[in-house]
Design a binder for these strands. Structure first.
Length: 467
RNA sequence: UCCCCGUUAGCUCAAUGGCAGAGCGUUCGGCUGUUAACCGAAAUGUUGAUGGUUCGAGCCCAUCACGGGGAGCCA
């Protein structure tokens, strides 16, 4: 194991003049007459360690296997580099070959790969510059999220992955079962005769992978005041876009004694905090994204950190869109949900930064959102980001028992399934609010990457669950 | 799921219905310290699959598979 201090990140940060040992994978090799150059990476930082090998100093039967993709341990002396491009370099004395990589078949070259090709070799793509940067940023972002909430006293709650409640209502769900699919037990008699007999199943009833931890988080918010979840989430929607995954990670804070204003305030502080943190900790990686992936990324992120978000109500947004003079594929009018083209116009043309749209018509939002006094709208908010679209969706929750019960009945939901959700309003209810944020969507925003499949290690999408 | 585009060497892409091509990578050789090194040479093909049209199909037609962009659903 590499001890602290032995990562290439640490070696590059140390001063010349001492022995050093590096472990890693060869990214490229350049040969000249009297000297060989190796770029070595162990994933600990964006920069490679340049290793210099004098001709004849390493046995030929080892050196010939030190090719792109090979894994080695190299011991030598850390010296000042005479050439531009790096401060220090490792002058090799001894090389131990762990795993060669046949250069005739190793698929990673030093240039010219498309994201689609790299996705097909997801077991090797993490060794590339781009995916090294992506997953270091992903790591830093995850830690930044936890530290944001920890600094504010939030309790981190592990909401269940498997749920037997069919009331989550946020899209199609994956079933979870131990029944023999080739030989399903059937109900023998009565009204449900012939249907699958779930009393035989593991949980005694149909079970699913969670589509949201929100309802569970609300339980904890009404006991621990401020809580958040951060975990995997599953949607069985047949969505084929650069913005959707069947398995993704979601962050869901939930705050008691909080209204929509407080919710928006937290959402904005959250985005600014985590972006600033990643900019601070992964500057080399972000520089790479700005140079090779999207040359507006740094400018965009600085803009987000340094400016207040724009707030508009749904009603105002509709007016802006109506007056825009644009021709829309989907007409704009009060009561219609905002389409992608509308969101993009608001974020990319009108305001050119994240926009929080609030107070949507009740008909197009979920039953649990708190009704406004106008009788037409609910206290919902969507944070829209340029290029990404909806990055956060949240609301103040309906805390009044009677109003919530009415909503459940009006929308023809199964009242009994929500018994515990209703009881939260019966015993010690409190105004509360929260939001859901797609972790990978935030990754897209931070990195400038174009496809959500390229910001998660092993993407799961309709028809694809490789690796 | 719908609309549009695509699938040719390891990769990125060319190729009027008439001999299958280039760049990169790889291999070999050269080069006094390179930075996506440079110079020279060589090897590399079931043109996504299955049918069809044609004297002749990488190219035209049909179906399917896979990929990309847009849309819907949403985070």
């Amino acid at each position: 194991m590499i001890e602290k201090g032995g990562y290439i990140r640490d070696i590059l940060a140390s001063t010349a003049g001492a022995p050093a040992t590096a472990h890693g994978w060869v990214k490229t090799r350049r040969d000249s007459k009297g000297v060989h150059f190796i770029q070595l990476s162990d994933g600990s930082c964006f920069a490679d360690l340049q290793v210099v090998i004098d001709a004849g100093s390493i046995p030929e039967d080892i050196l010939k296997h030190v090719t792109t993709g090979a894994c080695v341990r190299i011991s030598g002396d850390l010296v000042e580099s005479p050439a531009a491009g790096q401060n220090v370099e490792l002058r090799a004395r001894e090389i131990e070959l762990f795993g060669p990589a046949d250069s005739q078949t190793y698929p990673l070259q030093k240039k010219g790969h498309t994201m689609e090709f790299l996705r097909d070799i997801a077991h090797l793509r993490s060794r590339s510059n781009t995916f090294g940067a992506v997953f270091r940023v992903r790591n830093a972002l995850a830690y930044a999220i936890h530290s944001f909430f920890k600094e504010r006293g939030f309790l981190y709650v592990h909401t269940p992955i498997i749920t037997a409640s069919d009331c989550e209502g946020a899209g199609a769900m994956f079933g979870v079962t131990t029944l023999d699919m080739q030989n399903l037990p059937r109900v023998k008699e009565g009204e449900r005769k012939g249907q699958v007999d779930y009393t035989e199943d593991f949980f005694g009833k149909p079970a699913f992978l969670t589509v949201s931890g929100q309802l569970n988080a609300e339980i904890f918010a009404l006991a621990f005041s401020n809580v958040y979840t951060f975990g995997p989430t599953f949607r069985a929607e047949n969505s084929n876009t650069p913005r959707h995954l069947a398995e993704f990670w979601m962050i869901e804070p939930e705050m008691a004694f909080c209204d929509l204003q407080g919710d928006m305030k937290l959402a904005e502080a959250f985005l600014k905090y985590v972006i600033a943190k990643v900019m601070d900790e992964c500057s080399a990686d972000l520089d790479f994204f700005n140079k090779r992936i999207d040359n507006t990324v740094l400018e965009t992120l600085e803009n987000v950190v340094n400016n207040d978000f724009v707030h508009v109500t749904y009603t105002e947004a509709v007016k802006i869109l109506e007056k825009s003079g644009q021709t829309w594929e989907f007409p704009v009018h009060f009561g219609a949900d905002l389409q992608s083209e509308h969101e993009r116009y608001l974020t990319e043309q009108t305001f050119k930064r994240p926009v929080i749209v609030t107070d949507y018509p009740k008909e197009i939002k979920a039953f649990y959102m708190r009704a406004n006094d106008d009788g037409k709208t609910v206290r919902a908010m969507d944070v829209l980001a340029p290029r990404i679209g909806e990055i956060i969706g949240g609301s103040q929750r309906e805390e009044r028992y009677d109003v919530l019960l009415d909503k459940i009945r009006q929308q023809d939901l199964n009242e009994e399934a929500y018994w515990w959700y209703l009881e939260l309003r019966k015993y010690g209810s409190a105004p509360h609010a929260g939001f859901g944020l797609g972790f990978e969507r935030l990754m897209l925003y931070l990195t400038g990457m174009k496809n959500i499949r390229d910001v998660i290690p092993f993407p799961r999408t309709p028809g694809s669950a490789e690796f």
